[in-house]
Design a protein around this nucleic acid. Structure first.
Lengths: 115, 115
DNA sequence: GCTAGCTCGTTCATTAATTGAACACACTAA
DNA sequence: TTAGTGTGTTCAATTAATGAACGAGCTAGC
């Protein structure tokens, strides 16, 4: 599944290192090779990335993933959207933590009364 | 899959409303009936919950889920463990947000230079 | 040449997790 | 009796993710 999380993370990693391999991406992202392959091809399909074969310094055939102009534009939007989601999550967590802390405090208090 | 999240949430909901049905739990938790059934029975199997059939006010056969003494004890532990995880997530989020904000700031700056 | 070995991306059978329609049972009300 | 409602339970189907296996392209050593 291609979510904003992987859109963002893959575009970022590829941008900073276009010669990264799918296996390196998988390791970096902590997911399987199959998933990286799927997401990467999805990003290519929608035109955010393109892949080029080229000869590297050792004249070896190598792959290079490049952000398209649309990819660069979209990456900014995706990053912002991703950030907004994180901030929402952050607030949710904040209140969850408050509630949990309260529950724990209340429970240990009732334990004091019980004993 | 029975994770701390569902251990905590189910024990909490059941404790505050022992006559809750699996369908209500599913709705409340935002998961399927099948999953609630699975988790609930897992909690019963490990002895944190027990289920009783009884006649309710309308003399209708009804179900009641009750925390066992072990269940009450464990709920406290699970809640604490869950809280600790949330606090860790909170810190992770905090730094992720900082990083994302930076990236967005940097990107829009480079855009200014470009235009 | 030729072969062994390495690293690419790609494939796909398998596994894991979840879903929710369908079912059996118990009860109520008409 | 019968239709309707609300239980928990089941399980075939779906979805997502995994990673071993594969073919292609290249290098190094024989």
């Amino acid at each position: 599944m291609l979510t904003d999380e992987y859109r963002y993370k893959i575009l970022k990693l590829v941008q900073s290192n276009p010669e990264i391999s799918q296996r390196e991406l998988a390791k970096e992202l902590g997911v399987s090779l199959g998933k990286v392959n799927f997401c990467l091809n999805a990003l290519i399909k929608v035109g955010l990335l393109k892949v080029t074969n080229f000869r590297n310094s050792k004249n070896k055939l190598a792959y290079m993933y490049l952000l398209t102009p649309v990819g660069i534009e979209e990456k900014a939007k995706i990053t912002l959207r991703f950030l907004k989601n994180k901030m929402k999550e952050y607030e949710v967590l904040e209140s969850e933590i408050r509630i949990l802390s309260n529950e724990i405090a209340t429970d240990s208090q009732s334990k004091l009364f019980r004993d």
